[in-house]
């Protein structure tokens, strides 16, 4: 019997793209059937409900809350996935944080970047 575990973090906001990335990594964990981290807007509550991820108590969540929702094969797997999600939320960086230097692909844009270049 699958186990659905939710945690509602009141007053926590994070951008939806990073939430979707964390969701994807939690879904890949051993024993996890599906998982999602979403802000509790009405349309997101519907999505969680349709995906069989929403616990009854979480229906009261609002657009000011962040819901962590996991459906796993058993309670242990669900608890461990939720713990992992909380760790990722604590430090939601996606790894690469350096700045990059884009190399121009044409002379035209190279000259745009460096207008004083000594090109004929």
């Amino acid at each position: 019997m699958s186990k659905i575990v939710n945690r509602v973090c009141a007053g926590l906001f994070l951008d939806s793209v990073i939430l979707m990335q964390i969701s994807r990594s939690i879904t890949l964990l051993e024993g996890v059937e599906d998982a999602a981290l979403m802000i509790g807007t009405p349309s997101n509550l519907d999505l969680l409900d349709n995906a069989k991820l929403l616990a009854r108590a979480s229906r009261k969540a609002t657009g000011g809350d962040l819901i962590l929702a996991v459906r796993a094969k058993d309670e242990t797997a669900a608890a461990s996935a939720l713990a992992k999600a909380e760790i990722l939320l604590e430090r939601p960086t996606v790894g690469h944080t350096g700045t990059t230097t884009l190399r121009p692909r044409t002379l035209r844009s190279a000259q745009d970047i460096l207008p004083t270049a000594n090109l004929p």
């Binding site: 944080t97 884009l102 121009p104 692909r105 035209r108 844009s109």
Partner: peptide, 24 residues
């Protein structure tokens, strides 16, 4: 910049590269 996260290994810090590349 968050939107750059949709692309494979893309991260927000490289979002400007997409805009600069469209400059080409």
């Amino acid at each position: 910049p968050a939107v750059a996260g949709f692309v494979g290994v893309g991260t927000p810090s490289i979002a400007a590269d997409f805009t600069r590349t469209m400059g080409e």
